[in-house]
Simulated assay, not measured.
Amino acid sequence: MIVSYILAGFVWLIFGMVFGIYLGITDQLQFSNSHAHANLLGFVVSVLFGLIYRNWPSLLENKLAIPQFAVYQIGAIVLVAGKYDIDRGGRGVLAPPGSMIVVLGTLLMFWMFARTKAEKPGARQGRAS
């Protein structure tokens, strides 16, 4: 899960960078909102979730860990697609459900984290705290 989240984050980062370079080269700055959402929701939050899983390893034992990852990533894709549609003048019908799916993925992470047994961040076998 840790590696999945961080790899997903890097995929989002590469996408966001390439998309941003394309927007700058083609002078299509009306898509800057889509670009920002891809980088923030995709890269930043994905990597942060990966680091949370790394620092609280008991989260990985939760049966919701894989569904939480899937829900969040699907939500981010749907939301960014909706933002892109809005930025190009469309109705952005994907943005509202994408937003709700992202919130659901975040609430799942919150729920799992809030119910995690107290442990020192980063505490692992064989590692001094």
Rank of each mutant, 00 (worst) to 15 (best):
M1F: 08
I2C: 10
S4N: 14
A8G: 01
G9P: 08
V11I: 12
W12R: 01
W12I: 09
W12D: 04
I14Y: 05
G16T: 03
G16S: 12
M17C: 15
I21K: 15
Y22V: 03
L23W: 05
L23D: 10
G24W: 06
I25N: 13
I25W: 04
I25P: 08
D27P: 11
D27S: 13
Q28A: 12
Q28C: 12
L29S: 14
L29E: 15
Q30V: 15
Q30I: 10
S34E: 10
A36W: 01
G42Q: 00
F43I: 14
V44F: 06
V44M: 11
V44Y: 00
V45K: 03
S46P: 07
S46H: 00
S46K: 03
G50R: 11
L51N: 11
Y53V: 05
Y53Q: 09
N55K: 03
W56T: 15
K63S: 15
A65Y: 02
A65C: 02
I66N: 14
Q68S: 12
A70N: 13
A70D: 11
V71Y: 07
Y72I: 05
Y72R: 07
G75V: 01
A76V: 04
A76E: 04
I77G: 00
L79V: 01
V80M: 02
A81E: 08
A81G: 10
K83L: 08
Y84L: 08
R88Y: 06
R88I: 08
G89Y: 00
G90Q: 04
G90A: 03
G92F: 07
V93W: 14
L94I: 06
A95M: 04
A95I: 04
P96M: 04
P97R: 04
P97M: 02
G98Q: 02
G98D: 05
G98P: 00
S99Y: 03
S99E: 09
M100S: 10
I101G: 09
I101Y: 03
V103D: 02
T106W: 07
T106R: 03
L107H: 05
L108Q: 12
L108P: 00
M109P: 03
F110Y: 12
M112T: 13
F113Q: 00
A114G: 02
A114H: 07
R115K: 08
T116H: 07
T116V: 00
T116Y: 00
K117N: 13
E119C: 05
E119Q: 10
E119L: 05
A123H: 11
A123L: 09
R124A: 14
Q125C: 14
Q125F: 14
R127P: 13
